[in-house]
Amino acid sequence: MKRASLIAVLMLVGCATAPPPAPPAPSYDAAAIVAGVRASGKPVATEVEVHPPQDPLVADLRQQAQRDEQAGRIAEAAAALDRALAERPQDPAVLQERAEVALLERHIDAAFDFARRAHAAGPTVGPLCRRTLEMLVQVEGLRGAAGDAGAGPRAMDFAKQRDACTVKPPPRY
């Protein structure tokens, strides 16, 4: 009797269906997105850009990260930027660069968090402002493609803020 019960249970287990697989994460070209984000931060001829003095160690680490990224060593670029952030945790330029590398690593949530911190600590106008907000727009777009229903409205809000980063000169008479 025990044997028959065991066989019946095993047969029922064999008939159980596996849960459907999770939908695959949307495919995206991280390098193209990062290139677009960086392009959005190109200076406009009519705006004034202010660059505070940099810590030489942080500047060296940023340059090392850039060389590592160009060589395809994304993890090493991330590590160099993490060391720079250990020195200057609120540096908006380093935070933005770290957001871009996080996206290259395909860490969407980390990219969002770094960009959000960069925007909070950084300027409210100019190239860095546009870059951080463009990163937030792009990440929200990726989240929307993954099924996050709230991502679309958030992306639109970030896009409006990004557009406000460019200060137009006063009209000339």
Rank of each mutant, 00 (worst) to 15 (best):
I7F: 13
A8S: 07
A8T: 09
A8K: 02
M11S: 04
M11L: 13
C15D: 06
P23N: 04
P23Q: 02
P24H: 10
A25L: 08
Y28G: 05
Y28K: 04
A30T: 02
I33E: 02
G36D: 09
A39W: 01
S40R: 07
K42A: 14
P43N: 12
P43Q: 11
T46F: 11
E49H: 10
A59Y: 04
D60F: 07
Q64N: 06
A65K: 02
R67K: 14
R67M: 09
E69H: 00
Q70H: 13
G72S: 06
R73M: 04
R73Q: 07
A75W: 03
R83F: 04
A84R: 13
A84L: 09
A84T: 13
P89E: 05
D91S: 10
A93R: 08
L95W: 12
A99S: 15
E100G: 10
V101R: 08
A102W: 05
L104M: 12
E105T: 07
I108S: 01
R117Y: 01
R117M: 04
A118R: 01
A118P: 08
A120E: 14
A120N: 05
A121M: 11
V125N: 08
G126N: 09
G126R: 06
L128Y: 01
L133M: 07
E134N: 06
L136K: 02
E140I: 00
L142W: 06
A149Q: 05
P153D: 14
F158R: 09
F158M: 10
R172C: 02
